[in-house]
């Protein structure tokens, strides 16, 4: 399935590279993701959501025109994690890193500037993603029944089943800033920073008044890209 989607993307943009004013690039990048969720813990003062770290890998595909505008898409795997902490008597009784990883299809409009071998671009657009896996790691701290005995701490790292409470698909908005350096011929290196803001929650609505979480993440991706056609 993944292979078919990739082939479809490449085939769909390749004809555009024959346009005299257009170039097409395809690359491979990876990097860290930092972020969390927009969520409320309501009246639970001993509970908080904080940032967590994960990764993303991508196969970016771009079509760039001589007027500086461009369209970027591709395929990426983004692990969107968040940290959930519950405190008890000054200690974290629950410290959980929740990882929801999505296979994503972005679509962005970009504006580029070139300076010699360097190119810089700004972009904005949207993405849709399909939940690929869930993983959870962290610790449970159970207080002992007596002050003089140690708490019981259980650490774990496990794959989590995708079930009927999970929203299988996600859609959101993205903004990005990138820089590229042409090495030789069509080959270049790039680095980009991206901010993603989900418009759909991570959970399905299964009850009235349900608290929802929305992914909000920043990602950095660096890698190699090859450009076909156009002005390199």
């Amino acid at each position: 399935m993944r292979g078919k989607i990739l082939l479809f993307l490449i085939l769909s943009v390749m004809p555009l590279s024959s346009l005299p004013a257009a170039s097409v690039s395809i690359g491979l990048g990876a990097g860290p993701v930092i972020g969390g969720v927009a969520a409320s813990t309501g009246y639970r003062e001993d509970t908080r959501y904080t940032l967590s770290y994960a990764y993303n890998v991508s196969i970016p595909v771009g079509i760039y025109f001589d007027n500086g505008l461009g369209i970027e898409t591709g395929l990426r795997l983004t692990d969107r994690s968040y940290r959930y902490v519950h405190g008890y008597q000054g200690k974290d009784s629950l410290d959980i890193h929740e990882h929801n990883a999505y296979i994503e299809l972005p679509l962005m409009m970009t504006g580029s500037w070139r300076a010699g071998r360097f190119a810089f671009s700004l972009g904005a657009g949207a993405y849709i993603g399909m939940l690929a896996y869930k993983r959870e790691c962290g610790s449970f701290r159970t207080p002992s029944s007596r002050q003089d005995l140690e708490d019981i701490i259980v650490e774990y790292d496990s794959w989590k089943d995708i079930d009927s409470t999970d929203m299988r698909f996600e859609a959101g908005l993205s903004v990005k800033l990138s820089a590229a350096f042409r090495l030789a011929g069509g080959l270049g290196i790039f680095i980009e920073g991206r901010g993603d803001f989900a418009l759909t929650p991570t959970d399905r609505r299964y009850q009235d008044g349900q608290a929802m979480r929305y992914n909000m993440h920043g990602a950095i991706s660096a890698g190699l890209a090859y450009t076909f056609g156009g002005r390199q």
């Binding site: 639970r44 629950l94 774990y156 409470t165 959970d203 299964y206 009850q207 349900q210 608290a211």
Partner: peptide
Amino acid sequence: MGDSRLDYTS
């Protein structure tokens, strides 16, 4: 993990 009914940890 939260107040929602089916919001569980692993």
